[in-house]
Design a protein around this nucleic acid. Structure first.
Lengths: 220, 220
DNA sequence: TCACGTAACCTACTTCCGGTAAGTTACCCG
DNA sequence: CGGGTAACTTACCGGAAGTAGGTTACGTGA
């Protein structure tokens, strides 16, 4: 793959800690995405970085540590994109719609590495799984917040349960999306918002204006 | 460690292929559940079976193969229990309710090993992940069937999407359930059915009788 | 009841990979 | 231009997956 590009400057350069770290994460994300966590060896990642294995351990401590770093970075980016997208919304419905579109679009664009992120994160030790679960909690917090404004009359346990429902549904939907080239991110978002709007209807804020207008393109 | 217990019947018995296979699956499910996939060694499973490692390879080919066999067996059992529970239902709503209760109850009862099943299955090679995904498709088929009777007016793509939504939501909900001792399987089932009934309402069969009566205990 | 074939089983190994110790080299700064 | 530091390497260990080939218990027919 890189046989034709033996690095323009044939000499390998020393890089600053920060730069090397980002490069390692880029490479690791790519290789994990290609091969899966198990099938990836640290030696291969190191080689693709043009560096030797102990460097990876210097920076990330362990293979698990590297995976967690990848997941953390990607999820943070995903969360950021989603949050920014929702910021411009007027109505709660619009928040939901924009959030979903941003979420699915991002995953669709990064599908190769994200398939791993959505399924692989639990690959290793319980502590690793816990670290990954922690990033998921950030996302739950965001969703719970949306739900609380969207359905202010819902009791706390319902909010909590529905947060889990929406998280699980979104992840599975994202996986489905990556396996179906004919389904667009908007399609996925529309199905999700349709389902969720109805699901939440018993708790809907009564004061919701008569449909934003540019928001969800109508259940067809 | 085992110095004090030199096995009550000091002689180890030879077992038939079928019996040994089931015992191995039982032990593997237990150990995977305790330690997680990665942290479990084939030697440990073999030792707990009172047998040596090559036997495991004789029967299951590889560590992945053993995991797949565990998952397949458990998921088949889960599917069976769920299907049987739904068989006795009168209305579509009741089908949904009974299915959910059976599903969550089963997972709650087997929580230790099922936490692994729900999160760990993708831990290994892509082929393994695919094998596990295949068992998931059986479950999708069941759900899609329920949806088709529940919401006969829904178009095919909606059925498909909602199937994924419900699968993901159920799995996430199951995970949440196992981490929350104060939440019962019925609680989880109630939240799911409430949400789904509403979510599906635009496509509901018009002829659905005015609420079963003994089915979902009312959204509180 | 005893030989005998087969299938369950084991010992002893190779290989591969995660992880580490200890030494080396490029670069920055005075 | 010399010294110090931080990026980097080689060469190794231990442990677990997977395997080759031999051994022993058990059912079965004479």
């Amino acid at each position: 793959m890189n046989a034709a590009t033996p690095q323009p400057p044939a000499r390998r350069r020393r890089m600053s800690r920060a730069a090397r770290e980002q490069q390692m994460l880029d490479v690791a994300e790519e290789v994990f995405g290609e091969r899966g966590y198990q099938a990836t060896s640290m030696d291969e990642i190191a080689e693709r970085c043009g560096v030797s294995k102990p460097m990876l351990y210097e920076y990330f401590g362990s293979k698990d540590g590297l995976l967690v770093a990848c997941v953390t970075r990607s999820k943070a980016e995903l969360l950021d994109v989603t949050q920014k997208a929702m910021a411009g919304a007027a109505t709660p419905e619009d928040v939901l719609w924009r959030g979903m579109v941003a979420y699915f679009s991002f995953i669709d664009a990064h599908s190769d590495s994200f398939a791993m992120l959505l399924r692989e994160p639990t690959a290793a030790s319980p502590e690793t799984a816990e670290a990954v679960e922690a990033t998921r909690r950030q996302q739950s917090a965001l969703i719970a917040g949306v739900l609380a404004t969207f359905a202010p009359s819902a009791p706390a346990d319902v909010i909590e349960a529905y947060t889990q429902i929406i998280m699980g549904a979104s992840e599975r939907m994202a996986l489905w999306l990556t396996s179906r080239p004919d389904v667009s991110a908007e399609d996925a978002a529309r199905h999700m918002t349709d389902f969720c709007r109805q699901g939440l209807s018993p708790y809907l804020a009564p004061a919701s204006p008569p449909a934003g207008g540019e928001a969800p393109p109508e259940p067809r």
